[in-house]
Write a protein that binds this DNA or RNA. Structure first.
Length: 423
RNA sequence: GGAAGCGUAUCGAAGUGGUCAUAACGGGACUGACUCGAAAUCAGUUGAACCCUCACGGGUUCCGUGGGUUCGAAUCCCACCGCUUCCGCCA
């Protein structure tokens, strides 16, 4: 969340930045804030009086003074305080709620725009292959090779679920292992394996709640949610903690399944692996020093890009404009892989710098060595990469005229030496 | 699922109705002394958030969470959450 002091002291600037993201206004929030502070002053004066007199009472009793009158006065004061405290709590809750529903301000350097049409292409890598035959989309390729089964997945569970069969299941596992190996061995991320269900505080810490509860799968008899991304458990790992400055940056990578309701995308990408309710992802998460987070953001993005380079999959990197960024992000780079069946680039990774927005929500701080004061860390994350979409991109880009699929060289060792999947 | 115990600031931990909550005691961290330097030793410093104030400074809250009793709660009562141990069950 945003710092209420920053909003108070830089009202116009914050308002202007928020408008770049969408239709947000902080006027009401600031009015409530003023009211809240006035009430705090009032109730704290009464509490100071209560504390002062309470300290005198034992001494009076010792001197055998009659304290009856004082006690009855204190009772009245105590009741006044209780009433004010109740009112104050309501205002507090409202201020908190408004703050939690206010998005992060975009980094001032980010291109101002309304939607994905205003995103900025930063760079391209690789050249999409020229096919001399009619290509198959991955859902047909996979079904024909008997490595994917969407029909039975729909029978077992429903639409937007998939099953990986035989070499397909092995390829999925190989992709996960390959990504984790690169990130842990070359890029020095620490691998973690997390719970796939999280509580309300965790979902609030990273920004999924309270605003986007409809997007998450929730348990019926417990206040727990299936994770929409490993970002949630991994970022919340340090919730309510104070880290040492020397520890930063801390980099984690985690494999996890991700569960999303995909509310509001009915009819889009209905076939194949592109938009499922459950998909696998290898995630990268960093806790960075605030002065270094932009560098770390660039590094994290290139760590994700490297996976596509080694797999030989053409991609481009775009910077999301202010209007297309997610709620919690200050700056986001999307990596899009070339998907032959779509005839265009498709998002395969989203790398964001949240600056102190999540850290403030989740209360993740570090102690500044010089001043010995606490400061909020900057949190970052990105997919490194989405496994289902990587699977789809591999089989589509590496398909051959006979319907078989070549395994990218880097994956062959993870496939037990297998270099082609055919019927 | 049954039984018992526990939850105190960076960590361990004492505190069982008041004037010992900046919270004893210990560790850690930081500063200084000693040293060529380090270790050891000695001395000192060291919680967070919020409100008022240009500032100096003053004040409030926080003992797992939420309620209750009381003039006053870490302490008494109720509910919930989490952890540990034993039993049962299970991978």
């Amino acid at each position: 969340m945003l710092d209420i002091k920053r909003i108070r002291e830089n009202k116009d600037e914050v308002n202007e930045l928020l408008k770049r993201k969408g239709d947000y206004d902080i006027t009401y929030l600031l009015d409530l804030d003023t009211k809240r502070r006035n009430m705090i002053t009032e109730v704290e004066e009464k509490k100071a009086e209560q504390n002062r007199v309470s300290k005198l009472i034992p001494a009076y009793k010792k001197e055998k003074k009659d304290v009856k009158e004082i006690l009855s006065e204190m009772k009245i004061l105590s009741e006044e305080i209780k009433i004010l405290d109740d009112e104050l709590r309501q205002i507090d809750d409202e201020v908190k709620r408004l703050l939690l529903e206010t998005p992060n301000t975009p980094n001032p350097d980010v291109a101002v725009g309304k939607d994905e049409n205003d995103n900025v292409e930063l760079r391209k890598w690789g050249v999409p292959r020229d096919f001399e035959f009619e290509i198959k989309p991955h859902w047909d390729l996979g079904t024909d090779l008997n490595i994917l089964d969407f029909e039975r997945a729909a029978k077992i569970t429903g639409a937007r679920f998939s099953m990986f069969i035989g070499k397909g299941a092995k390829l999925e596992r190989a992709i996960i292992n390959f990504m984790l190996s690169v990130h842990t061995e070359e890029d020095k991320y620490i691998e973690v394996s997390t719970p796939f269900m999280v509580n309300r505080d965790s979902m609030t810490g990273t920004g999924q709640l309270p605003k986007f509860e409809d997007d998450a799968f929730k348990m019926l008899d417990k206040d727990l949610f299936l994770i929409p991304t490993a970002e949630v458990p991994v970022t919340n790992y340090y919730r309510d903690e104070i880290l040492d400055e020397d520890q930063l940056p801390i980099s984690y990578t985690a494999y996890s399944p991700c569960f999303r309701k995909e509310a509001g995308s009915a009819g889009r990408d209905t076939r194949g692996l592109i938009r499922n309710h459950q998909f696998d992802k290898v995630e990268l998460v960093k806790f960075a020093h605030p002065d270094k987070s932009n560098e770390e953001h660039d590094k994290l993005t290139s760590d994700a890009e490297k996976i596509l380079q080694v797999l030989g999959l053409p991609y481009r990197v775009i910077e999301l404009c202010t209007g297309d960024m997610t709620f919690s992000s200050a700056k986001t780079y999307d990596i899009e892989v070339w998907m032959p069946s779509y005839g265009r680039y498709v998002e395969i990774s989203s790398c964001s710098n949240f600056e102190d927005y999540q850290a403030r929500r989740a209360n993740i701080r570090f102690r500044d060595k010089e001043t010995q004061k606490t400061r909020y860390v900057h949190t970052l994350n990105g997919s490194g990469l989405a496994v289902g979409r990587t699977f789809a991109a591999i089989i589509e880009n590496y398909q051959q005229v006979d319907g078989s699929v070549l395994i990218p060289e880097a994956l062959v060792p993870f496939m037990g030496g297998l270099s082609v999947i055919s019927k």
